[in-house]
């Protein structure tokens, strides 16, 4: 599935919810189901500090694809992370660098990427792209 196909799938899933509660229930559920993050990666190197919550991000190259794993101490952020990982993980560095992430806005969660949220999510997205850039540079 391409990055945009995954984004479109998420947008479709969110169309099922007609109120905020259903939407957040789903995000919380995604957070709970996020694949466990290796404890050995919960280090200062992997932490993205926000004013509110902490996010850990790890990236590695599997063949020519970048695989992301992540975690947070706040469950809603964890759910949002899970979506970002689902969209971007398993793609080549070039695809990730060029990705235009429109799904957050389309499902009405754009405010969580705003700087005022100080939750590390915007920084996490930036960090994901930075990893992709670094892997791309390594390859060339």
């Amino acid at each position: 599935m391409t990055i945009n196909e995954t984004q479109d799938e998420i947008i479709e899933e969110f169309e099922l919810f007609d109120d905020w509660e259903g939407k957040y229930e789903y995000i919380i559920d995604l957070g709970k189901k996020l694949a466990p993050f290796k404890e050995e990666f919960k280090t200062e190197d992997h932490i993205i500090k926000g004013c509110q919550s902490r996010v850990w991000l790890h990236a590695e190259l599997n063949g020519d694809k970048v695989v992301f794993t992540a975690d947070s101490d706040a469950i809603i952020v964890k759910g949002l992370i899970s979506m970002l990982v689902k969209v971007l993980s398993g793609h080549t560095p070039e695809e990730i660098i060029q990705a235009d992430l429109y799904f957050m806005e389309r499902v009405g969660l754009q405010q969580h990427l705003a700087q005022t949220r100080s939750n590390g999510l915007a920084s996490m997205l930036k960090q994901m792209k930075t990893y992709a850039l670094a892997f791309s540079a390594l390859k060339n």
Partner: peptide, 21 residues
């Protein structure tokens, strides 16, 4: 429950509180 989660869900209900340090 993380304070940030509390803040987000209260905000959805129109309630403005502060969370964090």
């Amino acid at each position: 429950i993380h304070h940030q989660d509390i803040g987000i869900i209260l905000d959805q209900q129109g309630i403005a509180v502060r969370t964090g340090h």
